[in-house]
Design a protein around this nucleic acid. Sequence first.
RNA 1: GACCCCAUCGUCUAGCCUGGUUCAGGACAUCGCCCUUUCACGGCGACGACGCCGGUUCAAAUCCGGCUGGGGUCGCCA
Length: 432
Amino acid sequence: MSRIRFAPSPTGYLHIGGARTCMFNWLYARHIGGEFILRVEDTDQERSKKEYLDEILESIEWLGMNWDEIHYQSKRFDIYREYAQRLVKEGKAYEKEGAIFFKYDFQSVEIDDVIRGKIVFNELPKSEDVIIKSDKSPTYNFSCCVDDALMKISCVIRGEDHISNTPKQILMYKGLGFDVPKFAHVPLILSPGGGRLSKRFGATSIREYKEMGYLSKAIANYLLLLGWSPGDNKEIFSLDEAKDIFEISKVNKTGAVFSIDKLNWVNAEYIKRMKVEELTDLVESFLKTKDFLPQGVERSYLEKVASLFQGRIFKLSDLVDWARFCFYDDFGYCEDTKTILEKDFSKEIEALIKKLSVINDFNIEVIEKEFRATIEELGLKMKNLVHPTRVALTGKRIGPGLFETMEVLGKDKVCQRLNKLIDYWKQGGSNA
RNA sequence: GACCCCAUCGUCUAGCCUGGUUCAGGACAUCGCCCUUUCACGGCGACGACGCCGGUUCAAAUCCGGCUGGGGUCGCCA
């Protein structure tokens, strides 16, 4: 049975790079029918926080992954000390000032990397390293090595920033008499400017993306596109589909620049392909956490709003800007609507109100019919009436199709808002 | 500085392993046209890459070497 692990350190939130490494591990494990193990590397008691751990586990699940085992290094200190002690007895390590140092028995070290092939190190910067600190906690390279061996990890999949740790670890495996596992070093995700993904580049944690209204499946899908490709020009696929065809050896060697534009596109694709009911669920809980929904908004209404915007938003948070008029009456007219409102169309709008107010079944077909009839009778062009009407209803010059917008808002609100625009003109254009 | 990794359109990538089918395919972004009540969506199209130099070969994006460029690591952090 193959055993694969992801080993996060709870000293920060799960960021994009970690999430992707986790996905590669999970995908590989599931693809070969192996076990997926989470190993929490919480040896740094000072910096490890429960808050971070909770967030990491939550993000992993949110992205659609599960695990078979979870271990905590903070509970295994005895084990690390025992193995370190063994090295001391064998003369491969020694104690000094309360710490234990491992002496590298260095010749030349070769890594057989599943993604990169052979990597050869001909020299190492040091001839020894601390494996147990003076506070008796293990150092990263040592606990990592002991655990990967004891937990029978068959392939260590991690970021390429660990390549230079690998020769030291291999020497430790050998010193301890352990079998050396396979390694696969995946490329890093880069900032748009090149270089490491950093806080300087906006959001980096999965949680932040969730809060911006990105869907878990879209993020998982996009992250997978960074460094791996199904190879058939397919770009939209689920973790589950990927699982069936994923090959760790097919992961790229080159670092990939994170593109918010492409993430937006993927996210929009997911939103478009979703059933309205499903989208409404997401919209509802998202807007609730943003404290955006007024009291008493009905589910059926929310569903109409979701459907109205389904094809035109990139992320859920776009609704906060664009769909405000669906929930609140207190909006003013945007600055850029001035040119539209310059000309007074009171008479025409009044005629429109008259036509609309007598409609019984206020649906899109009837609305459009009456709207066009009004245009016809007044000898106007569509845009003459469409633009001011949209501004009256939404406060903006751009938005969803006018007639569906009217249907969603309903007759009363439509007429009321149209009258408000007439008042605006009466008062000589003051934004009441 | 030392060690290591990497190198196809602006970006993500397919192709590279098993050289010819590729004057290099797809996607995002950008631009144009169409659709149209606005903005999007959708449709169509344009722009746009094998870093450079050598070598191997009848033939190289594909194999080899060098150079250049980018990245990573050098903590009793992980």
